[in-house]
Amino acid sequence: MQPALYVQNLHKTFRNGHNLKAVDGVSFEVNPGEIFSLLGPNGAGKTTTISMLSALLKPDNGATGVSDIRIMGKSLLAEPLAAKAMIGVVPQDIALYQDLTARENLVFWAKMYGLKGAQLKTRVAEVLELIGLTDRANDRISKYSGGMKRRVNIGVALLHQPSVIYMDEPTVGIDPQSRRSILDGVIALKNQGMTVLYTTHYMEEAQELSDRIAIMDHGKIIANDTHENLIRLVGQKTRISLSVNVEPETMIEPWRACNGVSTLVIEDTKINLLVDDSNIVLPRLFETAAAKNVRITSVEIQEPNLETVFLHLTGRALRDA
């Protein structure tokens, strides 16, 4: 089966004084009808990757092999216009004309995607219905709430019924209700057979939406599999989150030395540990703390999740990375 999106050996270095390697040999495939998430902390290279997949940035020539991006079999580098007709891009920030109405925006973008006449009118009406803004269609975007703007921002990318839709962190900075609405919308798109490439730094979103997840860090894909398979990478390890009545740094060395502790990081005021068996390791942690005259004020034991996977793979917390 031909992949909806085929990405091979992408490299990008920004030469702005300190040669920042934003993307370093990224390769993956997305199957038709699949939701594929790129999960990683801020600065991991997700947006740079999606910019190259949208033809906004030209990939560098990698030291090993040739870069290639194919959308439904069409090469974005060789046939950019044909390939771009297959994608709909939802940028991270609202990219709409604030002084035009929602309808005017949709009509304009529909024309840019090559829609005309009756088809254009029909699609604009359908998208307005889909995003639930038919009643407010003639209001200027500047008068909309943040959530409504997000919905129009997504609606623009759906006008030409693309085969693949890219969504670059579409839930950043919005209220929980709008966020829920967007996540439901993404699932609805999948149910209609659309392929979705979704970037996020919220592991809950990736976990809920994705058929497959690629975890990115420092411009590289460090793991790429289904949610279940990624969790298996951690093995039987459990994540324990502890608070203490002193500075958390006090307990780094004593707890790291405990038998059964594989990883330890401090996140805010909490100490997160990856341990082999919490039933055996937890008493040891209490003993060590008592020996140091330190009192443990809270304990939280979590089942392995994507956060645990990231911690396991990088030795850092996802939110801190």
Partner: peptide, 14 residues
């Protein structure tokens, strides 16, 4: 700066 020009470049418009 507002992001609409980059978005235009993602459409099949040369």
């Amino acid at each position: 700066e507002e992001g609409t020009l980059p978005r235009l470049f993602t459409t099949p418009t040369s």
